[in-house]
Design a protein around this nucleic acid. Structure first.
Lengths: 125, 125
DNA sequence: CCGTATCCTCCAGGATACTG
DNA sequence: CAGTATCCTGGAGGATACGG
């Protein structure tokens, strides 16, 4: 089940890494409300670099989560859009997000207690 | 909503990174069937290094997802166990996993098509 | 406008050795 | 047994410059 050579496990853990990477979720979320052009995405996610946005989109395209449509006008125009598969991913992601939302307080509390205890120990030294 | 300075967004994205990191999910999953001792975890996740297991557990403990119980015998004994919060996280994680499972085929297919197309382009050169 | 190419930095994470 | 300390390397990801 957690044998790293198992191809299914590898797919799952790749997906999890993808989810956990710096930009994927943000991009998927942003594409959630319809197709967007490249620079439109850049504007809506100001912190992403051009390079990283390109790479993220390429990965999503490769996985079949996002479609890329080129209109060879001048200047060129490229539209990105969630595929059906991509849209279906939104639900489980959303599940995770709501869990986080529901438990921010609890988590922050736990962290505060933990850190306080660490400080207390440091004090004792 | 995607303002990185927003504390709620930061918590969410930290959680996502946590989910996406190399060991967290594996550890949570492994603790899913009851409390485990340190080396017991190491054995069940052979690929994890001692260092990384320690760090992962510390993070989980800090976030209140895992409890750490020390029994100061000789040799010492330390038990790790999912807290209620930790257990509640299993559901959304599982949601993601099932999505992955349900769509492995589709993803692999998309990847194959994508790669084939890339090769075709490389060929043309 | 939409990328690719290159360079550079930083740190996650492995290997190893040591302690209580 | 359950860690901490230290060193080291690969690769993620930013900045910048260029091309179609």
């Amino acid at each position: 089940m957690k044998d790293p050579t198992n191809p299914v496990c590898r797919t799952i853990s790749t997906l999890l890494s993808r989810i956990g990477d710096k930009w994927t979720v943000l991009v998927v979320q942003t594409l959630g409300d319809g197709p967007k052009r490249f620079n439109q995405l850049r504007r809506e996610i100001p912190s992403v670099s051009q390079r990283m946005l390109t790479l993220t989109l390429r990965n999503l395209e490769r996985d079949g989560l996002v479609s890329r449509t080129v209109t060879p006008t001048i200047p060129p125009r490229v539209d990105y859009e969630l595929t059906e598969l991509g849209q279906s991913l939104q639900k489980p992601i959303c599940g995770l997000a709501t869990w986080a939302l529901d438990n921010v307080e609890a988590i922050h509390g736990a962290q505060a207690r933990f850190d306080a205890e660490q400080d207390a120990k440091a004090e004792a030294a």
